[in-house]
Amino acid sequence: MTAHHTFFWLMGGMVALLLTASIIGWLLGQRVSHENERATIDNLNARIRAWWVMVAIFAMAFLLGKLATLLMFSLVSFLALREFLTLTPTRSGDHRALSLAFFVFIPVQYYLIGIAWYGLFSIFIPVYGFLLLPSFSVLAEDSESFLERCAKIQWGVMLTIYCISHVPALLLLDIPGYAGRNALLLFYLLLVVQMSDVLQYVFGKLLGKTLIAPVVSPAKTVEGFIGGVVGATLIGAGMWWITPFTLLQAAGIAFVIVIMGFLGGLVLSAVKRSLGTKDWGTMIKGHGGILDRMDSVSFAAPLFFHLTRYFFAP
């Protein structure tokens, strides 16, 4: 099968799945009477609608090619960084560093992917960003909570630009026998992460009793976690045929993606709490902000990228 054949099969499958989900959601919406149930069903339907949007965006990126994908993810980084910094206290002395992050670091990081300069792409923010951002801040001569401000800005930049940019960076990988199909890896990553999120939510709602991290995330349960990990790992393994991996390898990689995604969700939930909020924003209906959707992806993407690169792209 060519990449396009696989893609159309996948899209067909996704559309069929979402159609079913939408119909079920609509039917459930017709039947509920209780106020509490209504809220859950509304939440479910909003999630399904947001999924439609994500599938549509992915399809567009795939059909329009690498440039469109890079532009799309740089926009995601832009929106995520904007969300992150809106909630992060900074002072006017940070103004130049922040402008630099938005208008230099985002374009350069994605440009480096565009020209396939792996060496600089992988150190640009950890090295140059690390050194330049506080250098720009310090010129404003304001030492009031300087370390906290710098640390927060760097954390935001690493998470929203560096980590998220590893999703489209999958297009860089030169895997023998897999040429021209890298966009499927991108789809694979997003599918496994999102499936894990959805299954954790569903299993949590159905069977959830024991809280797994009550202080950081009052919604996550042990039952949801196990259901999500097992379910998403199985789905990831079952999708081995769109990847360069064997069935067992796919299971292992999906397991890593799922665990990292789970940890990403927890970590960002703790970050949110320490910034004093529950949701990152209101951009995607029913999904909080864009960071609420990208939290697991941002943690899973760099590991997925490096594991695939190390073992499959000699």
């Binding site: 832009f78 904007r82 969300e83 910094l85 809106t86 006017s92 103004h95 130049r96 922040l98 402008s99 938005f102 208008f103 924003g281």
Partner: peptide
């Protein structure tokens, strides 16, 4: 300052 920082 002359250059904006985009925050919500």
């Amino acid at each position: 300052s002359w250059f904006p920082v985009p925050l919500i």
